[in-house]
Amino acid sequence: MSSATTSTEHPVEHLAEHAAGRRATGELIRHWRRHRRLSQLELSVEVAVSTRHLSFIETGRAVPSREMVLRLAEYLEVPLRERNRLLVAAGHAPEYHESRLDAPELDAVMGAMRQILTGHGPYPAVIVDRAWNVLDATASVALFTEGVAAELLTAPLNAYRISLHPRGLAPRIVNLAQWRAHLLHRLRRQVAITGDPLTRELYDEVSGYPGDAPPNAAGPGAPAVPLGIRHGDEVLSFVSTVATFGTAVDITVDEISIESFYPADRRTGRVLRELYGD
């Protein structure tokens, strides 16, 4: 005599979960499309799909294939972290791995970044993550942390907090309103591009620090916004660049940046070489 087995699966619940997944996928795609200020027609033309099908995806009436999710995400410039979220919502496996910084597969990447730092000395440079937490730095960054309150120097050190907090570097920045405007504009743009909640939280925090109304330009004839800081009786002047890995397929690598500071005048270069040169 055979015994009947009782299934614990509930088809109605399974269908409801599937429908919820479709809606979530569609809502995320619609969010990124609107975030990029594109119409359904504009996006459908660019990714070679009918407007009707795109509308079905956004409303949850159709589930996009893995290839379609990746094609949409690529055109919409969705960050790798969020592309995984789109894939999972659509019922697909994540595409992009998130490695630990000390993982063996990142040895070459971390080695390249350390080489950049070594080659940049005696000038300041920092390696930061997506929320501008400092991962590594040249010895001359100590020039920027002189007099900074101890609580701002506990891990994780955050470049924006150290720069703009009234107990950080801010009191030593001679063109604070100008530099503050530059940093906030850059961070606001990062929020707009990535939609990252951590970056948004950081922007909300540091934009609330006290400061004068910022100017809108670098100044007449200036090629870039300088950073001027007091160091003893001197005023040192810097310009900076921010570099990223352009071909990253790992989330950790994709979110790493290197900001390098260069002397904006001969006097600053001389002081740095005297203090931190070999």
Rank of each mutant, 00 (worst) to 15 (best):
P263G: 05
D129Y: 11
R186Y: 11
H35T: 09
A125P: 02
P197I: 11
E46I: 12
V63W: 09
V63R: 15
P214T: 04
L153D: 01
D136K: 13
L117H: 08
P171F: 12
V78E: 00
S3E: 14
Q190W: 13
H53N: 09
V235Y: 03
L106C: 01
Y75C: 02
E58L: 04
R52T: 02
T59N: 12
G221W: 14
D212H: 05
S140N: 06
V191D: 02
N84W: 01
A170P: 01
N175Y: 10
R34Y: 09
A149L: 09
A150F: 07
P263D: 06
P210Q: 12
T25G: 05
A16M: 12
D212S: 12
A103G: 05
A222I: 09
L227D: 02
S237C: 10
V134L: 11
A170F: 06
F56M: 11
P171E: 06
P226A: 04
L153G: 02
S99L: 07
R273K: 09
S44Q: 07
P197D: 03
R22V: 05
R22G: 06
A137W: 14
T268F: 13
R188V: 02
V249C: 05
R33V: 05
T51C: 11
S44K: 11
V242R: 03
L86Q: 00
F245R: 08
I57D: 04
P104T: 10
A150Y: 05
A48E: 13
L43A: 00
E17L: 13
W32P: 00
G91R: 09
T59C: 11
A150M: 07
V126S: 10
L117A: 11
D254N: 05
A137F: 14
A73I: 01
E274T: 12
E201G: 07
T25I: 02
D278T: 13
A48L: 14
P171C: 08
R186K: 11
R188M: 07
Y262N: 06
L275T: 03
A224G: 13
L43V: 05
V126T: 12
I256N: 03
G269M: 06
V174W: 05
I57C: 08
F238P: 02
H53C: 07
F144P: 01
E234N: 06
A217I: 09
